[in-house]
Design a protein around this nucleic acid. Structure first.
Lengths: 230, 230
DNA sequence: GATAAAATTCGACCGCAGTCGACTTTTGTA
DNA sequence: TACAAAAGTCGACTGCGGTCGAATTTTATC
């Protein structure tokens, strides 16, 4: 009847995550032993493996929660009417700040998400589905506002923009970019580069002045491409 | 007087790499123990750490050689007069095939290169400098042929295109793309998307000159990727 | 050749991730 | 309530990556 087990299980799981996060924050991921987590959570070492397959999984479970939280915050800050470029920069920079708040955390997470082991593939896909969806929504709205070329496939465009975020993150971890300003400037520039192709072309004739203004403050997708279909 | 030491050292180093590669190929990276490598190389376990800081470093040293080799092969196949898109697809698909020939190898390499640990940062930068240079050369030539917008910054464009390769690789590891054909199609599509923006305009039709000028300024202003170094 | 200094080699040792099977608690059934 | 099966718990144990200091080999100096 009751679900004593269910309840306990959830509690134990939370206790593990809580203990792990506390220790990770305090001593770092690598310096924290599974046994220490078990002791802090008041359980046996082996028990942890009934909840998580590996040490990294504890970490990923935590990230999952945090990412939801981060996206929640973001949703509030986001202005759905702002130019796409600005929305993207806001989204990616928020994620960047979150992910790199702890360098080691961020690297593990990025590695696991970008090049997942067989074991964490599923979890990894869950997580980046969230990212991609975040971008996808922005794109869909932008598309509805007519900011994008109609023939562009949403999926590909989403991946494309996400790739630029990945690159920026990678550049930071490799030491090519150091300051947050540099990261943002670089990201902005890359996104702009992408949008110049992805964004709907604006023909030389100036039609609706509002549109032109929007373009000016936004990015810069002029019709330098002319009308070439591809 | 001579360098008995020098010679032995080089020999030992090669012996370690050779033994490691043989074992890695046979049993996989994780299943191969340092001790096994030492035995196969005919030396003591501790000795290995006189040559490599960590197990992964042995692997990276091997990759370094192989990547040079792969680029060598590639240079022969490449047709410098072919359209940029085709050259890029050839380059990236070659690298993709090489990197993913052994799934585990590739994942480790990609992880270490994209999100390097502090320790392997330097090596990682060496390696991806090679990649970026490979792309950079193609871009420079394309630019000379007039295939690119003159105001595009080579560094940024290189990063941009490389990012799309990374994304494709990541998609393969995450299981979004499975067959090589899918990978190539996806890559091609993404590169095309990028070039449509990066590639030179097709028509002589010009946009609003003011806007064009603004673009120029902007791009100059945000040229950071290359200067993050300091 | 003798000898001190430096470089290199080695494997016993340490700490930790993850396994295993014995043990305890909960659940379903009658 | 009785009891068997299922679920969950546990810590001793295994195997491995990496360290350390003692031992060995090479080089430099006389």
């Amino acid at each position: 009847m009751s679900g004593i087990r269910e309840i306990k299980k959830r509690e134990t799981r939370q206790a593990i995550i809580a203990a792990a996060v506390a220790l990770f924050s305090e001593k770092g991921f690598e310096k924290t032993s599974i046994e220490a987590i078990a002791i802090a959570a008041g359980i046996g070492k082996g028990t942890i493996y009934g909840y998580f397959r590996a040490k990294e999984d504890i970490f990923l479970a935590f990230c999952e929660d945090q990412i939801d939280y981060a996206f929640g915050i973001l949703a509030e800050k986001n202005d759905p009417q702002a130019p796409l470029l600005e929305q993207l920069v806001l989204l990616f920079m928020s994620q960047f700040r979150f992910v790199t708040a702890n360098r080691e955390f961020g690297r593990l997470l990025a590695r696991e998400m970008t090049f997942p082991r067989e074991a964490s593939r599923e979890k990894s896909r869950d997580l980046d589905a969230r990212y991609l969806q975040g971008v996808g929504v922005l794109l869909t709205r932008a598309s509805q506002r007519g900011e994008l070329k109609p023939e562009i496939d949403n999926m590909h465009a989403t991946g494309h923009l996400y790739a630029l975020y990945l690159l920026t993150l990678s550049a930071w971890y490799s030491g090519y970019l150091v300051e947050e300003q540099e990261v943002e400037a670089s990201l902005r520039s890359l996104l702009h580069q992408a949008l110049t192709g992805i964004g709907e072309r604006v023909t030389g004739d100036k039609g609706d002045p509002k549109v032109i203004e929007r373009i000016g403050q936004r990015i810069v997708k002029v019709d330098i491409l002319g009308s070439g279909e591809n």
